[in-house]
C-alpha cells in the first residue's frame, strides 16, 4: 500500500490534567477527502491543530509526508508551508489588502518575485470568485468572501494538504453555500483535505471517509453513506439526530 501523506499513531494530548486526545490512530492517503465530525468539545480542533504543530502533543507520533511533526523543531515551519489551514474565524490580516494577504507568504517564504506572486494570487482569487475585490481590505468583505480569501491564501502556498476547522460555522446561513461550493471545487482538483464540519451535504458530496470523534477518541470511521444512514455507535446516532434537526 502507498505511504499515507498524514499519519497519526497513537497520539495522546493533555491540557494540564484534561486528557483531550486519547490514542488517536489514523492516516490519510494522498488525494483523500476526510470529514471529521463529533460533538462540541470532543477534540476535533485540537486534533487537526496538532497536525500542523499549532498544538503540542505528548504521546505517539504524527508525520506529514514522512516528516515528524514536533514543535520547537525548525522543521515545523517547512511542514506548515505544505499544510494549508483555514480557520473558523477567517483570521485574514486586516492591515493588508486582499492581494497582499495572498502574496505575503509566497514572496517571503517561497521567494517568488512580486509579479509572479501577484499573478498567482489573481488566478486563485478568480478561482474562489472574488477576483475583482483584490485591492480591497478584509473588513470591506462579507464573511463568506473573507473565508474564500482565507482559502485562497492557504492555497497560495501550494500546499499538499488542506485542513479546515469548521470553515462555515461563523457564517450567516446565506453565505455557507458559497464557501462550500469553493471547497467542493477544490476537492474536484484532487487536493488532500481534512475538514472538520457538520455539513452533511458537503460530507456526502465529497468525503471518502467520515471520522466521528467523541470524548477525545475516534469512535467510528466509515463512508458518508454508511455513517449517516447506519451509524454503528449509539453516540453517533444521537449526534446525527442533533445535526439533522
Amino acid at each position: 500500500m502507498e505511504n499515507p501523506i498524514i499519519r497519526l499513531e497513537n497520539v495522546d494530548k493533555w491540557f494540564s490534567q484534561f486528557h483531550v486526545l486519547r490514542g488517536i490512530d489514523f492516516s490519510v492517503k494522498q488525494g483523500e477527502r476526510i470529514v471529521v465530525c463529533g460533538p462540541s468539545g470532543s477534540g476535533k480542533s485540537t486534533m487537526i491543530r496538532c497536525i500542523n504543530g499549532l498544538e503540542h502533543y505528548e504521546g505517539g507520533r504524527i508525520t506529514v509526508g514522512g516528516e515528524l511533526v514536533s514543535q520547537g523543531d525548525d522543521n515545523i515551519e517547512k511542514i506548515r508551508q505544505r499544510v494549508g489551514m483555514v480557520f473558523q474565524s477567517f483570521n485574514l490580516f486586516p492591515h493588508l489588502s486582499i492581494l497582499d494577504n495572498l502574496t505575503l507568504g509566497p514572496i517571503k517564504l517561497r521567494r517568488l518575485p512580486r509579479a509572479a506572486a501577484e499573478a498567482q494570487a489573481m488566478e486563485l482569487l478568480e478561482r474562489v470568485h472574488i477576483g475583482h475585490q483584490a485591492r480591497k481590505f478584509p473588513n470591506q468583505l462579507s464573511g463568506g468572501q473573507q473565508q474564500r480569501v482565507a482559502i485562497a491564501r492557504a492555497l497560495a502556498m501550494e500546499p499538499d494538504v488542506m485542513l479546515f476547522d469548521e470553515p462555515t460555522s461563523a457564517l450567516d446561513p446565506e453565505m455557507v453555500k458559497e464557501v462550500l461550493d469553493v471547497m467542493i471545487e477544490l476537492a474536484g482538483t484532487g487536493m488532500t483535505m481534512i475538514c472538520v464540519t457538520h455539513e452533511m451535504g458537503f460530507a456526502r458530496a465529497v468525503a471518502d471517509r467520515v471520522v466521528f470523534m467523541d470524548n477525545g477518541a475516534i469512535a467510528e470511521v466509515g463512508t458518508p453513506d454508511a455513517f449517516f444512514s447506519a451509524p454503528r455507535t449509539e453516540r453517533a446516532r444521537q449526534f446525527i439526530q442533533q445535526v439533522i434537526h
Binding site: L109, R153, M157
Partner: peptide, 12 residues
C-alpha cells in the same frame, strides 16, 4: 488568531 494564521502559513 493572527499569530496562528501567520504560523499556519509557515512564518517563524
Amino acid at each position: 488568531g493572527q499569530y496562528e494564521a501567520a504560523m499556519a502559513i509557515g512564518f517563524g
